[in-house]
Design a protein around this nucleic acid. Structure first.
Lengths: 114, 114
DNA sequence: CAAGTTGATAACTTATTGGTTGAATACTCC
DNA sequence: GGAGTATTCAACCAATAAGTTATCAACTTG
């Protein structure tokens, strides 16, 4: 799981972390502010932040005893980019084409299998 | 991790599984065909397929002793949708706005914090 | 029916994840 | 410098994930 995209996706695959990002989309926040909505220890939130940081999805400053977090959405561009390759597969009109191609394939079994 | 989006994202957070989806974007394939490029047992691939199926990213048929897989990209729409909310944060021109807003926030500390 | 092929399942191992609690660190303010 | 606040770190635990091998089930074909 060393590749960048996998790291990003797995960081995003947690509702707490996505919630944190949503909060950060409204502006910088400290760890305690980010932890407040969640029923878990600060340490747990701190770990989530480390995951997000490792994925490059947030950055952190140092302001006195606070370590304010800010959103760094750049890695999400990679996700958006990747998923866009599949848009045609869920786009309604092109589903028709998909069905058509599948039908073609059925008519020529093995032709695409070897 | 019971929510749909988390399930989808974590299914996608694995290069083998994304590779399988890429292959399926070219058309249906059997399990052995999907396993072929990978240096792992069929059982392992079978497990990956189960993860993808549980996330609704593939569906499977029954054709004699084969269980052909086909791409079902619908859940990706949710991912695309979600990530689009953040586009403005990585879009270059709007990064300027982001910096500007951050600057505003600095000038009014606490104003957005409470 | 026996043999070969395709695939899934079970049991097991190892590593990772997500959480906990209890210090430790770093800073501010009186 | 001591008290309080903010955050991290370390050690631990339970659950999950990703892989293995061995076995089983379903189907085709000689």
């Amino acid at each position: 799981m060393t590749d960048h995209l996998s790291t990003t996706l797995s960081a995003l695959a947690d509702p707490t972390r996505r919630g944190i990002l949503a909060r950060l989309s409204l502006g910088e926040a400290t760890v305690s502010e980010l932890a407040e909505p969640y029923d878990m220890s600060m340490a747990a939130v701190s770990k989530h932040l480390k995951v997000l940081e490792k994925a490059g999805l947030i950055s952190r400053g140092k302001e006195a005893q606070w370590r304010p977090c800010r959103l760094e959405a750049a890695p999400m561009a990679e996700v958006a980019d990747w998923v866009e390759n599949y848009r045609r597969f869920w786009d309604e009109s092109l589903d028709r084409l998909g069905d058509y191609l599948a039908e073609l394939q059925k008519g020529d079994p093995g032709g695409s299998r070897n």
